[in-house]
Nucleic acid binder design. Structure first.
Lengths: 150, 150
DNA sequence: AGCTAAATGAATATCATTTTCAATAGGAGG
DNA sequence: CCTCCTATTGAAAATGATATTCATTTAGCT
């Protein structure tokens, strides 16, 4: 999905909710898209603050991230300590994460069979699934290679 | 694993680390075991404070929970907002969680095939897994039944 | 018993996130 | 284009979980 498409869908979302179409909200989307797939809000706030023109305050950035989560363009990947890492899903298909505990690298993957087995587990417990998250923590190939050097 | 067995293993752990064997630490373990399988620290602090004899201060409870995590008797189940839910693993076998978003109930499950598929994914990415967490959010059968009544 | 380092409690700090509140700016209707 | 109402914004303050500081106490060796 293109960025413009997301923005126009977001615009429709705002209208439908009776919210206003403000420049700040759309500039924040641009910045998030520029920043990369994974981010922390404080990091983003600093990054935006370091740029020439200030587009929004910390409060507005926090509020907009919440709004984008409600809209569905952003989701929480994981909370580590007091840090929360988000991802700009941007219409990306569903996936899970491998997280390198050494360098923080996040690798995305998708395994259909795992999804099916989860549904089966839910059925067995008469549990109605809404969403899920699978995180595997470990050492990525790069860090592994590096540790062998020592 | 029995509580006494855990405590004696913990004692060995403390000795080995050069830490001291204090009454407070063991009384906190007792309280956690009494409390139930899942808890939040603040909840635990209040619960302990409401009992006749004060066994430990908030700081000591926080510090001891950290220590027990390091030891391996406690693990973080999930962080929701600013709340962190822990579980007293007490040597329980590995498992994943179904979490009811309505009532907060936590159901444990284990699916061997999911574990195997995870290993396969890791191999494909030359990723060395250390641990993982699978959380499925949804509505438990009890809440589902209740919502039909309305 | 006496010594030394670790543990404790109380108060304070920290840090991400939320809220408050006064000022500003969408946008619908005229 | 003007007006009005309401949502939004920014800055500062509040919140809430957790960490840290520091003076005091205690575990556990000698």
């Amino acid at each position: 999905m293109q960025l413009e498409e997301i923005k126009s869908k977001f615009e429709r979302f705002l209208r439908q909710k009776g919210y206003k179409i403000t420049r700040g909200r759309f500039e924040i989307i641009d910045k998030i898209a520029d920043y990369g797939p994974h981010f922390e809000i404080e990091e983003l706030v600093r990054w935006i603050a370091n740029q020439n023109r200030s587009i929004a305050s910390r409060s507005t950035i926090y509020r907009t991230v919440r709004l984008l989560q409600e809209f569905g363009a952003i989701r929480e990947v994981i909370k580590l300590g007091n840090r929360t890492i988000y991802e700009f899903t941007a219409g990306k298909p569903h996936h899970e994460h491998l997280i390198c505990v050494q360098c923080g690298k996040i690798i995305e993957f998708y395994k259909e069979e795992i999804e099916e087995l989860q549904d089966k587990v839910c059925e067995e417990h008469q549990f109605t699934p809404l969403n899920h998250r699978l995180e595997i923590f470990g050492i990525c190939s790069h860090c592994k290679a590096k540790s062998h050097e020592d």
